[in-house]
Design a binder for these strands. Structure first.
Lengths: 232, 232
DNA sequence: TCCCGGTAACAGGAACATACTGTACCCGCT
DNA sequence: AGCGGGTACAGTATGTTCCTGTTACCGGGA
């Protein structure tokens, strides 16, 4: 009947609100992060809405349900952690340096956002049957997978093990760090990061050698544009 | 006044029911496992009670709340997995053989009990702020910790890294296997188990070398009673 | 010895209270 | 017209209370 072109807004009165939904969603997620920080991991949607300065039912204007909000929070956390890790992983340099810097950033972030981490562990996105931490870990692992694949291709090696390695590395770091958070023992954060970096390198080294690639962890990686030199 | 010795029941009418509570708890947990297998991971307490042939409210006679039941389920799963892993870990033999057998049992168990695994991932025991999978993983990791500590002591090495290593190993295996379960790609279960075994050994080897211990993964471990021989 | 009322502890369930989630609808503003 | 706000309400899951059996043990009396 009426023309409803997707390419151009029908009415200026509609264009006025373009992106409004996304803005409001971000506001709610921001409020949720503040509420988690202040009320702890067992925060209710009521408290989140209060933190946003709105009534609880307003939430359903912008989120399909509570799981949708939690998905938004998980996405935001993924952004935050990715932003922490990106400098370490994209800066290039030696493998060991990248690993050590990334793990240090990761352990620091977790230590500083314990409530947020606990919130994610105890809320499940029943829609997909996964919990929020799994979603965040999956997102990180997929980034790592891409990184590994890029570097494996530089050496002409197969990329089929990149994904299992990436998920293994993420699980290794997360599990050990989570335990350390709840039960630090006599282990300092930097010592833990050193240990994890060593173990992660051993894991990567094993996967690389299985592909016939030998790397010195303390020599810089080749860069896509430059000629590469495999070192034994 | 009246004799009420703790050593002997005052009345046969009371003694009749000794252990009844534990029996009923086990029955409920059994019913829950069946209900999860048949109704999927989103099973309700109502359905569990129905599977047990009882009204829902009966549950609260034996469990403090729903989290208590889930704790019971998590404990049972821990028993089941521990029973799967124990033969591999206690049989002795070479490190590589133990690792490979344990990981094979673990991947097989997860592949066969996908619904149960998903149930655990999506139900949180809010009492402690942890999810059920974390509890199971923690229990397994503690068993591994003890195993590592025993063997480290045989070599006169420090045991302070046993716990971080154990949790790291558990996280590594669980994370990679969980991803493989949801997204197997072209990787067979046995190939995955081989990869994980190699990586776990590299991790253990790194931790051992940091303590000055070098082991050949394909030579049998020393046994407590026998003289030990470190092999370079 | 056997029967019999009494009793302790469990079995089962209905009715109720509470909390969280999500929907419907109403009004106001620009 | 379209968004902003909120109250009232429905649905569901979670616990609690209370009432009615049921079973096996106990002690006493014929």
């Amino acid at each position: 009947m009426t023309s409803s072109p997707a390419t151009r807004p029908t009415d200026g009165r509609a264009a006025r609100w373009a992106g409004q939904r996304e803005r409001r969603r971000r506001e709610f997620v921001d409020a949720a992060l503040r509420a988690i920080a202040s009320h702890g991991p067992e925060v209710s949607t009521e408290q989140i809405a209060e933190e946003a300065g709105l009534g609880r039912t307003r939430l359903y204007k912008y989120f399909a349900d509570a799981a949708d909000l939690q998905g938004g929070i998980a996405d935001r956390v993924t952004e935050l952690i990715t932003a922490e890790l990106a400098p370490a992983l994209n800066a290039g340099g030696t493998p060991m340096r990248m690993i050590r810097t990334a793990i240090d950033a990761h352990t620091r972030w977790l230590a500083e956002h314990g409530n947020l981490y606990r919130y994610l562990t105890m809320h499940s996105l029943s829609a997909h049957g996964r919990d929020a931490v799994t979603d965040v870990k999956t997102a990180i692992a997929r980034n790592l997978t891409v990184l590994f694949e890029r570097n494996l291709e530089l050496f002409g090696a197969s990329t089929r093990l990149a994904e299992p390695v990436a998920f293994g590395v993420v699980g290794l770091v997360e599990s050990s760090t989570a335990r350390w958070l709840e039960n630090p023992g006599d282990l300092g954060r930097h010592e833990l990061a050193d240990l994890l970096a060593t173990w992660v390198w051993r894991l990567l080294d094993a996967a690389l050698r299985a592909q016939g690639v030998e790397l010195d962890p303390d020599l810089p990686l080749p860069v896509p544009g430059e000629p590469l030199a495999t070192r034994g």
